[in-house]
Design a protein around this nucleic acid. Structure first.
Lengths: 243, 243
DNA sequence: GACTTTTAAATGTCAGACAAATAAAAATTC
DNA sequence: GAATTTTTATTTGTCTGACATTTAAAAGTC
């Protein structure tokens, strides 16, 4: 673990990268304790605040955790799926909001990925996951639900569908795609009739999963995608030309 | 933007979260300049090193960039797709290596996601992307190629396939899945015969894309997946029982 | 031996200072 | 008056040294 003393700018970034490389290469293993801040500052020949800035960078990526007190210090984190989800979702949400990604593009990506899970989910979904989906559908049919709550329930339902595939890597990858769509979805105003149509499709998906009918799940997702995109188009239309 | 002065621990984390929230909510917009470190430390009633640690956390997530000098400071970053790729890949790679994800699980996820792109890619792939794939296939058939170089070329080919879908959100989501697999793939020793088989399948994929034959792309990907998994099983078998 | 107290080590935070970069303002020159 | 150079002010990057707080282990006490 060495840094280049010739490049004077951004010492803390260099140190962070050096430690990061050591973790990725396996030189530092999970739960191993890093040298103390004082020792690191000695090793890299920089002051403690500089070392601290480097460590905070790594903490922001959940690569390390710190513990105070005697025999405390910085420890290499086991990056859990749960922990990676939130990072993934934050990044995806920002990406969509900052790059003026069209609703269509995001929608297409989301349903394409979701359909990739469908066959696996039809095969492996547990009774528990099916029950979660039914419960969310029931919630969606409650009158007086706000549009935000409706969308949140929609996300929960789709996450259950994704988790049904029983593949944590898939769940992780899709968490970003599904959750990041929510702010875009929230911009749609759902009429009573459109909610009814969506709930009907959700029920079809749940039914198909219950029957382990992969083809029908896929077909219904296609239908749901085109319906969602039509809804968004209507919203855009109304904004351009409010009747 | 406020922080809770009652929770004494991790002031820098609280400040980072406050600024992060302001960015996500749109209170701070792209390219907007944050107050100077001195002003922030005044505003949050903490010292400048503490503010700096918070800013370094945000810089680690590419949420801000800093510039020295007069009229310098911290600016809200536009999170580009390119910038998000590398984060996504780092996280995915660590996730796989730290959680003992089985080759089968990762492989299943990767091919499921890739097959989700296939129909779009068959429809929209450009001549350029097809040429990239052909070039990678040609490279793969060069004798004397190391296993690592073979895998790297494999990744490049599959990224071209994914990019063919012409959906940046899909490309972003899949970058992690495809690239993170590479270290696992590198553990496979490719015999001359297995390379030949893979190249044949790659050629089939390229041919099918040229014909815009979505069904054939999908079928070939299924074949490639099962072949890859068989290869990995053989490697595992040989390690357990070296003949 | 079990409990309490002390101690040492480590992170968290602060204050003040200087260096380096950089853009704007001021001065100089033609 | 315009172009160039110099100065200056602002802001981040880094350092030194200090104190507070937390925590586990060691020492002491009953």
């Amino acid at each position: 673990m060495k840094i280049d003393p010739k490049k004077p700018a951004d010492l803390s970034a260099q140190i962070a990268q050096a430690i990061r490389d050591a973790i990725i290469s396996g030189e530092l293993i999970v739960d191993e304790r890093l040298p103390s801040e004082a020792e690191l500052s000695e090793q890299f020949q920089v002051s403690r605040p500089t070392v601290r800035e480097a460590l905070k960078r790594l903490a922001a990526q959940s690569l390390i955790r710190t513990q105070r007190g005697a025999s405390g210090g910085a420890f290499v984190n086991r990056l859990s799926f749960e922990g990676a989800y939130s990072q993934q979702i934050t990044t995806s949400t920002l990406l969509l909001s900052m790059n003026a990604v069209s609703f269509d593009t995001a929608c297409e990506a989301r349903f394409a990925l979701e359909r990739a899970c469908a066959p696996l989910s039809a095969q492996r979904r547990t009774a528990d996951q099916l029950a979660t989906m039914r419960a969310e559908i029931h919630r969606q049919s409650q009158p007086g639900l706000t549009d935000e709550a409706f969308c949140a329930s929609d996300v929960a339902l789709h996450r259950a569908l994704v988790d049904g595939a029983g593949n944590p890597v898939l769940s992780y990858q899709l968490a970003g795609a599904v959750e990041a769509m929510q702010p875009l979805m929230n911009m749609i105003t759902f009429t009573a009739r459109s909610r009814e149509a969506i709930i009907a499709l959700h029920n079809q998906i749940a039914d198909a999963l219950e029957d382990r009918d992969s083809t029908k799940v896929d077909a219904t997702l296609v239908e749901l995608e085109s319906y969602t995109r039509r809804l968004a188009q209507d919203v855009a239309q109304q904004r351009r030309n409010p009747a």
